[in-house]
Design a protein around this nucleic acid. Sequence first.
DNA 1: AAAAACTGCAACCGCCAGATA
DNA 2: CTATCTGGCGGTTGCAGTTTT
Length: 332
Amino acid sequence: MGRHSCSMKQKLRKGLWSPEEDEKLLKYITRFGVGCWSSVPQHAGLQRCGKSCRLRWINYLRPDLKRGMFSQQEQDLILNLHQILGNRWAKIAAQLPGRTDNEIKNFWNSCLKKKLMKQGIDPNTHKPITDDDHVKDKKIEFFASSSSSIPLEAELEHAFHFNNRGLMLSSSSSSSMDTGLIRHALLSKSVSDPLFLVEFQSGMDPISYNSNLAAEFHQTSYETSLPNLASFDHQKADFTNNSFMINEGRESSSTTNNSSNMNTSLSGGFQPMTFEGEMLQFKGLNLKSEEKFLGQWEHHHMHEVQVNNASNFNIYPMGSLLGEHTHVFHQD
DNA sequence: AAAAACTGCAACCGCCAGATA
DNA sequence: CTATCTGGCGGTTGCAGTTTT
């Protein structure tokens, strides 16, 4: 049985695409859409194999491609995702709308990898090269070495405990967990949850986080200084009338002020919001479906609630908050 | 100025899984 | 069940432009 290969076919062009070829392919796809790639060259009048056409479209001609430098936000995300997923570029690219797996792979190999090595961090393990292993992060190792056949969701479930109140980071599991994982867990989980939140249990040691994101969580007492969103009565949260109110269950503390509710307009999505004393930010929420969410991550998925004293408390409210759906979490 | 070394990136290659005949 | 086709993926190559020697 002979393997089908572009290279085995005769008279097919290889190498860089000419503007004329691009134009032919673009015209064809614009008119007929993406379908059977193997028939594209013939119909489009190209001396290329279908595979080559597909690649050219995906990596260069697609209209929704984002060009230019990677933003700092994108770089951070790639680093975090790579730590979780390893070289699964397609999965990483799925979280960066407008970027291709090839682009991210190239960027990693030519830039991020070197950047990490300069910082003395092993780009494969994301750990300090001089690390003598006495603070092993078994969970991250699990991610790095896990088979690609394990679904991402399952991997995350391995390390995080999800329940219907949100994401629990117990002292045993979270103390050595990179915040990138937490963040990613949230990203992944929040696709299906209308409102997702994190509860820090007392006793976790934020200092043992090994990424520079650790500072976000560096605070001595989470329970006393964070609004206790995990226990607020979601039944009483008001998702109607285009407003999002949390007005119960917040615990006061010495580091927070007297403000006891927050609300923001949901018309057209969350607007950036400041919450007195505790910087709350909901940026660009405009989600209506999982597809949209997955396709437009960067623009619509930074919904962080930043609480004072350099701690971060992440909430990921989802598209279903945008009016029609009012599912809320229930206490066990 | 020229050659060598380096860099970034587009494209190719080979493997794999799923679909289909 | 087997053979074949197809698309998707990650690793790798090779080229063009840039920098260094």
